[in-house]
């Protein structure tokens, strides 16, 4: 299998990019793949915290880009999984220290050792976003079912299309079935209808995420967590499996049909 560079981005901040990157990387590693997660959110790094690796950082992405260390030296091996690595972001440096071309070069090097390179993008559509997107073969756009987040996701998808990115898929995070039922929140179908790109994941709102974040143990390692299950499903879909989307409270799942239809295009 060709190595795959997948960037996780969103437009609006705080919708769960980092949570999904950490968990997806862990899930893919659990499935036996060589995986590296790259934190491209320079200045606001937190992928290391979610993976529980913050105490092991010596060098970071900026050090690699500026030639202060070799790429290998900056990679941190996961505590639990020997085939999972992190390339951390710098904490306090200039946000433009890493250029898109640097990122492409670094990811090229990572491709020779990993089958999955997951890049966690910063929010927004500025320099950091463009840098995180530059090396991507595939893009996962994360949104929550809120009007503002969907609007920003739409904007980002438009920019990705303009940039010629062909594989762009959608993850909808923090879905609260009760709120959808009450009509207080957009449904998965509503979001899909607006954004009309293939669906790769639907992740429920889950208090376990916050617990897991604080402990630095990704939820996919917790077999009882519904969000962990949803992200494992997402990983299986990435690996080419047909995994149906669970129906929301007995409602006929139009998005199963819709997403299958969209994938066929």
């Amino acid at each position: 299998m060709e190595p795959r560079v997948i960037t996780i981005t969103s437009g609006k901040g705080g919708v769960g990019k980092t949570t999904i990157t950490a968990n997806l990387a862990t899930a893919l590693a659990l499935a036996g793949h060589q995986v590296v997660a790259v934190d491209a959110d320079i200045g606001l790094r937190n992928l290391d915290v979610m993976m529980g690796l913050e105490n092991r950082i010596v060098y970071d992405l900026v050090d690699v880009a500026e030639g202060r260390c070799r790429l290998r030296q900056a990679l941190i091996r996961d505590k639990r999984l020997s085939n999972l690595f992190l390339l951390p972001a710098a904490q306090t440096k200039d946000k433009t220290a890493v250029q898109p071309a640097d990122m492409v070069k670094i990811c090229e090097e990572l491709r020779s050792e990993f089958s999955f390179v997951l890049v966690d993008s910063p929010a927004g559509i500025e320099h950091g976003f463009r840098t995180a997107l530059a090396p991507a073969d595939e893009v996962i756009v994360v949104t929550t079912p809120e009007v503002a987040a969907v609007r920003d996701a739409d904007r980002v998808i438009g920019l990705l299309e303009a940039a010629g990115k062909e594989s762009v898929e959608l993850a909808i995070n923090r879905v609260k079935p009760e709120m959808v039922e009450r009509g207080d929140m957009l449904s998965v179908e509503d979001v899909l209808e607006i954004l009309s790109i293939p669906l790769i994941g639907v992740i429920p709102e889950d208090p376990e995420v916050i617990v897991a974040t604080n402990k630095g143990v990704p939820v996919v390692l917790n077999n009882l967590s519904p969000s962990g299950q949803a992200i494992k499903d997402m990983a299986r879909r990435l690996l080419g499996e047909e995994v149906p989307f669970p129906t929301l409270k007995g409602k006929e799942s139009i998005f199963n049909l819709l997403s299958r239809w969209l994938r066929r295009k």
């Binding site: 609007r151 739409d154 904007r155 209808e193």
Partner: peptide, 23 residues
């Protein structure tokens, strides 16, 4: 779809096959 932030303009008529999203 014509997505948020995108603009389609033309001196004649325009036909969009799909949605014009908010923005």
């Amino acid at each position: 779809p014509v997505r948020s932030g995108q603009k389609v303009s033309y001196e004649g008529s325009i036909v969009i096959i799909g949605d014009v999203n908010p923005g």
